[in-house]
């Protein structure tokens, strides 16, 4: 796909949000309820709410924790998933337990982790994000590694690929479409966990800012936080898609050629 079709896709993607915003703007224009301030009021609250200081104090820590937690989940999930996927015995042993752990809603992890490290501080929050993101990455990696074409594996064996080459060129790249699927699911979970992990202690971060605003009845400010959260989630998924688009161009081509023949 070239740039212009990418731009077109982007345009399509933001068309509906724009329409909704416009609707919101007009419907809420003469609103008198303090809980539903007009969109105009909310927009006006933006510059005063999100000053450079606040961005550094709240948004940056949130994003940093998200990046760390998500990165950790990626590394652990792919490494562990590869191990499990390559080894039938390990898989038979661990898979039921993993499916069970996956079924636990990640937000419940937050109070459990807090038992050990408390609600405030970075460790617990990063751990919560990482654990929330881990399962989809792990399980999809297992799936991808297990689905590796055995002819490719035989090919690497007959050409005597060294272990690192085998892991990178065959196992990792071969399972990358499934890893990407898991990573995409994990990203939205990560944003959710980022916010939830900040709600309890409410010391700093975007989630904390929203709770603080709500508790002090700074309703338009609360709404600015929520909108900001939506925008961040959206931007992250756009970035993800662009990266995926480039890294997995071969996979799209392969799928297309399989459908064609």
């Amino acid at each position: 796909m070239n740039l212009s079709s990418l731009a077109r896709q982007l345009l399509l993607a933001i068309a509906l949000p724009i329409v909704l915003l416009v609707l919101w703007w007009f419907i809420s224009a003469n609103n008198t309820s303090p809980f539903w301030p007009s969109l105009e009021t909310i927009f006006k609250a933006f510059p005063t709410t999100w000053t450079a200081d606040r961005i550094m104090a709240d948004i940056m820590p949130s994003l940093a924790r998200l990046a760390l937690g998500y990165g950790l989940a990626l590394i652990i999930g792919v490494a562990l998933g590869t191990l499990i996927g390559l080894n039938r015995t390990v898989r038979a042993l661990l898979e039921p337990a993993l499916e069970f752990l996956r079924a636990i809603p990640p937000p419940v992890l937050v109070p459990i982790i807090a038992l050990f490290v408390g609600y405030s501080g970075w460790t617990g929050k990063i751990a919560a994000i990482a654990l929330g993101c881990l399962w989809p990455i792990l399980l999809n990696t297992v799936e991808g590694v297990r689905g590796l074409d055995e002819v490719l594996v035989d090919t690497s064996r007959t050409y005597r690929f060294r272990k690192p080459t085998y892991f990178y060129q065959v196992v990792l790249r071969g399972s990358s479409p499934q890893v990407a699927t898991g990573a995409r699911q994990a990203l939205s979970l990560g944003v959710i966990m980022m916010v939830i992990s900040e709600l309890f202690a409410a010391d700093n971060g975007l989630g904390a800012a929203i709770v603080q605003a709500q508790r002090s009845f700074a309703i338009p400010q609360m709404w600015t936080g929520i909108i900001l959260l939506g925008v961040i989630g959206f931007l992250l998924s756009v970035i993800f898609r662009v990266v995926e688009h480039r890294a997995l161009a071969w996979y799209r081509g392969l799928r297309q050629s399989e459908r064609g023949s």
Partner: peptide
């Protein structure tokens, strides 16, 4: 060297023709 019956599946789809041929030589 072995040329497999399922030759299509023996080529790495994420590599180009040149890279497919080169990888064993690298190894």
């Amino acid at each position: 060297a072995v040329v497999f019956q399922e030759y299509g599946r023996s080529l790495f789809p994420w590599l180009t023709v040149r890279q497919n041929i080169e990888l064993p030589l690298k190894e």
